[in-house]
Computed example of a mutant assay.
Amino acid sequence: MADDLYAALGVPRTASEAEIKKAYRRIAKTDHPDLTDDPAAQERFKAASAAYDLLKDPEQRARYDRGEIDSQGQERPQRRYYRDFSEAQGNPYRGKPSYGDFSDVFADLFGEGAAQGGRSGFGAGWQGAGRGGAQSFDMRGQDHRYTLEVDFLTAARGGTTRITLPDGNVLDVAIPAGTRDGQTIRLRGKGAPGMGGGAPGDALLSVTVADDPDWRREGEDIITVLPISLSEAVLGSRVEAETLDGPVMLTVPAGASSGRKLRLRGRGLAGPGGRRGDQYVELRIVLPPQVDDELSRLIRDWSAAHPYDPRAGRGKRS
């Protein structure tokens, strides 16, 4: 684990959020364990992944910059001395030291949950073995955070993706339909092992949805791009369009222009209450690979007889 998270990503401490994300993606594209068997590259990816997981959170980044947490996101313990505890118990180095209840010490070192004997921290599992017996404790393992990049359609439709954790374990992760960029998937029990009889921590996967040139998301609606020919745009036609549920036949109206959007109700992503958004199909006119003399002559003659200005009214101010 790198001590300097910025160095692990190769960016300065003044780097913007976008620069940090770009640096992580650059490393992931070359050093991900699924792409290389080079141990050094895998270590670089492991360090970069941990760094990105912490630095992408503005609050966590600010705490790291202030030195309140370390490179693993753990609280940095504040130095406390015997005098602090002794005086807190009304015993400023006078007479026989009174050890009393250790809960205040655990609270200072491990948080209030430890002092209260909650489910987390040392207080949770501090067990006496009986009068004069040895004492032991149970503590839940730490959660580990990772970043998982999935393609747009897997995030939209749902599916399964295989990942390799830094410890070498290979997992098949279920991606819920409609997964958003930045959403966290929890894998219970896949974090650090617990201490004593404590349960293991969880693995928390922060999902990054990759951009797709033909699909994009706006809330629960999705927008796709559908190339059409010049004749289909002029004359209208029935063409096949891709949806999350499979291909459908779509009517392109005669005289359609590039950029026009056709609406498919209920073909978007599932939202609150299970109601799905819509899909908008954006038309894009594509000319033939080569414009021959016949097409050129046809368009030239037609334009001479039917002149029009597609830019009329643009750029004018009243």
Rank of each mutant, 00 (worst) to 15 (best):
G130I: 11
G130A: 10
G130W: 09
G130N: 10
G130S: 11
R131G: 03
G132A: 03
Q135G: 14
D138C: 09
D143H: 15
H144C: 11
H144Y: 08
Y146S: 10
Y146T: 00
Y146V: 03
L148P: 00
L148D: 02
L148I: 01
E149F: 03
V150E: 00
D151T: 07
D151C: 06
F152C: 02
F152W: 15
F152V: 00
L153K: 14
A155I: 05
A155T: 07
A156S: 13
R157W: 03
R157M: 06
R157Q: 14
G159N: 04
G159D: 04
T161I: 15
R162K: 14
R162L: 05
R162A: 04
R162S: 07
T164P: 06
T164S: 10
L165M: 15
P166C: 03
P166V: 02
P166Q: 02
D167S: 09
N169T: 15
N169H: 15
V170E: 06
V170R: 12
V170K: 10
L171K: 15
L171R: 15
L171F: 12
L171C: 09
V173M: 08
V173R: 13
A174N: 13
A174S: 14
G178S: 05
G178Y: 00
T179P: 09
R180E: 11
R180I: 01
R180F: 07
G182L: 13
G182Q: 10
Q183S: 11
R186E: 14
R186Q: 12
R186S: 12
R188I: 15
K190F: 10
A192I: 09
G194C: 05
G194T: 01
G194W: 11
M195F: 13
G196Y: 09
G197D: 11
G198W: 09
G198C: 12
G198V: 11
P200A: 14
G201D: 10
G201R: 07
G201I: 13
G201V: 08
A203M: 11
L204Q: 02
S206D: 02
S206F: 05
V207S: 01
A210C: 09
D211H: 03
D211E: 12
D212P: 01
P213H: 03
P213C: 00
D214T: 07
I222F: 03
I223Y: 14
I223R: 13
I223L: 15
T224K: 05
T224R: 09
T224M: 04
L226H: 04
P227N: 02
P227V: 03
P227Y: 04
I228Y: 02
I228P: 00
I228E: 01
S231Y: 12
E232I: 06
A233N: 11
V234G: 09
G236F: 06
G236R: 06
S237V: 07
R238H: 13
V239I: 11
A241G: 04
A241C: 11
A241S: 10
E242A: 12
E242G: 02
T243G: 02
T243D: 08
G246K: 04
P247L: 07
V248H: 04
V248S: 01
M249Q: 14
M249Y: 04
